[in-house]
Amino acid sequence: MDHYITAFGRINSTQASRNGKRFWSNQEGLKLADSLKAIYKILGMNYLKFFKMDEMSKLGVLGAEILLKDLNLTYQAHEIGILMLTSESSLFTDQKYFETISDSQNYFPSPSLFVYTLPNIVMGEIAIKNNLKGENICFVQDQFKSHLLFDYANYLLTRGSQKALLLAFIDVTKNDYECFMILIENNIKNNFGSFTSSRIEELYCNE
């Protein structure tokens, strides 16, 4: 069965966009935390758990919201999976957690930071928010790899258990952040091209 890219989105330090259309510009030069809050508001979200998440999970949850917000996916929960790739992994939060344990005079390891010191937690947060009970995998590579995301997605889609997949590239560092997501379905409506490695690369690079 052929698969298509049915939505894509991006958040970075200058903008947020859906299907190539910018809906937020960081004109005030907001820092990470404030940008995430601004995008949350623009998306009209009302999800208090959001404020408990680390930055990487917030970014991922916003990215998923951009794609899934107005779509009525009719698949069953266990038929929708999430694949992610990151190069920074959870290091931004690892450093924050490390600060809670690095001073023996002020040693209070934080459980709510520790739980986010795994990069795949963002998929758990997206899964909970959107009730997605399908496959998940998290790769950590030096940069965006369209062929790796394609190969893994293709493997899952070909064998049939997964009807839709959210593919994500998420990175947060001290000075920068990026979230790029695409939705793959076997639905020809509203399509932004056939699901191929080169099309993913094109969408990632060209926007």
């Binding site: 408990k52 209070f108 390891p109 934080s110 459980p111 709510s112």
Partner: peptide, 13 residues
């Protein structure tokens, strides 16, 4: 449950 654990830290700290 994670909030509960964080409250334990609050009480200690």
């Amino acid at each position: 449950s994670i909030d509960a654990l964080e409250l334990i830290v609050l009480m200690d700290k």
